[in-house]
């Protein structure tokens, strides 16, 4: 299994080939379209992430010692961003998720692409992902 660090490096490489924001956005949109949708039953108030302009649902469960996430949003760009986060953090050990250093976000220039309100949304997503890992890891 690839570590969080290895996956981050791959993503940084993926983004290096893009010259401009337009290509980055197109990539995010494609990722967003591919994002495995969360099961309808998990689209509940409790799984809704606060602080996003669009609605974002996140669900997590433990499988064989790893935390597996699924998510959805009504906005495609937002889905693209979650898709990247989940590529890095889903299917990992709870401890690794909690302690993950997500420096790749700065390196691929994702935050620069987002306005302050949208960057807040990103922070909220990461927080929720880590909170799930913490809660499920304790069991």
């Amino acid at each position: 299994m690839e570590t969080i660090k290895e996956i981050q490096e791959e993503i940084i490489e993926d983004f290096e080939i893009f010259d401009d924001w337009m290509q980055k956005y197109e990539f995010l949109i494609d990722l967003g379209k591919e994002l495995p949708q969360i099961e309808e039953q998990y689209k509940i108030e409790d799984n809704l992430i606060k602080g996003c302009q669009s609605r974002v649902w996140l669900h997590a469960e433990e499988k064989n010692g790893s935390i597996v996430y699924s998510a959805d949003s009504d906005a495609i760009m937002t889905k693209g961003i979650i898709a990247i986060l989940l590529r890095v953090l889903s299917n990992q050990k709870s401890e690794d998720i909690i302690n993950a250093d997500l420096s790749f976000i700065d390196e691929i220039g994702l935050k620069e692409q987002l306005s302050a309100t949208r960057a807040n949304g990103l922070v909220s997503m990461i927080k929720k992902i880590k909170l799930f890992a913490l809660a499920l890891g304790k069991r």
């Binding site: 337009m22 669009s54 906005a75 495609i76």
Partner: peptide
């Protein structure tokens, strides 16, 4: 079915300020 947020984010990159939400 496009989300207005997605439209706002992209046109912003093109220098255009519209409101979404």
């Amino acid at each position: 079915e496009l989300h207005p947020y997605d439209i706002g984010v992209i046109v912003d990159k093109l220098g255009i300020a519209i409101r979404t939400g």
